[in-house]
Simulated scan of single mutants.
Amino acid sequence: MLRWLIALLFLANLLALVAVRGLLGPTPAAGGRDPYRVSREIHPDWLKVRAVTAADANDQAVVGAPAPLAPIEASALQ
């Protein structure tokens, strides 16, 4: 009984080795296997890249800076 278990584990390890080495084909995480992506793009020439102006930059959060203080007024409780 133990011999069959060891043989089964050995075969499972061989199958895992073959899969990791890529002998069964590329893994799904390999990426770069979508050759039709460029042909499926709709109007890629319409995309325009422009620099961010100072007015647009005011809306953007500054990463790493402290959060701005909210304009809240407080009064003493009575």
Rank of each mutant, 00 (worst) to 15 (best):
L2E: 04
E41A: 06
G32K: 01
V38I: 09
A7W: 06
L14S: 02
D56F: 10
R33G: 05
A30S: 12
V62W: 12
L15I: 13
G32S: 10
R40N: 14
Q60N: 13
Q60T: 11
A67W: 08
P26I: 06
Q78I: 04
V52R: 00
R21L: 11
A55K: 06
V38K: 03
R37S: 09
V63T: 13
A51D: 00
R37T: 06
L2C: 03
V38N: 11
E73S: 14
G64A: 05
L17K: 04
V63A: 15
A12T: 06
P28D: 10
P35E: 00
P71L: 07
V18W: 09
D45F: 12
I6E: 10
A76F: 14
F10K: 08
Q78V: 06
L9M: 07
A19K: 03
A74I: 02
A29W: 14
G25F: 04
D45A: 07
L15F: 01
A19V: 08
N13G: 15
A19E: 02
R50W: 02
L24G: 02
A30V: 11
L9R: 01
P68T: 04
F10H: 12
D45G: 07
R21V: 09
L24C: 03
I42W: 08
G64N: 02
V18Y: 07
I6T: 14
G32Y: 08
P44S: 06
R33M: 10
Q60D: 15
L17C: 11
Y36S: 08
M1F: 13
I42H: 11
R37L: 10
A29Q: 15
R3S: 15
R37K: 06
V63K: 14
A76V: 13
A51F: 11
G32P: 05
Q60G: 13
P71N: 03
L24E: 00
P35R: 07
P71K: 02
P68Y: 02
V20D: 06
W46S: 07
H43A: 15
V49E: 15
V63F: 12
A67M: 13
D34M: 00
I72W: 03
P68S: 05
L9Q: 04
S75K: 12
L9A: 12
L11C: 13
I42M: 13
P71G: 01
V38D: 09
A12Q: 09
A55I: 07
Q60A: 15
P28G: 12
L69E: 08
G25I: 01
N58K: 08
L17H: 08
A16L: 05
V62S: 05
D59T: 14
A19I: 11
A76P: 06
R40Q: 05
A51Y: 06
T53R: 00
W46L: 15
A67E: 15
D34H: 04
L47Q: 09
L69N: 12
R21K: 11
R50D: 13
I6Q: 10
Q78K: 04
W46V: 11
D34W: 01
N58M: 10
P66C: 08
L15Y: 00
L15A: 15
A54M: 02
D59V: 02
I42A: 13
P44H: 03
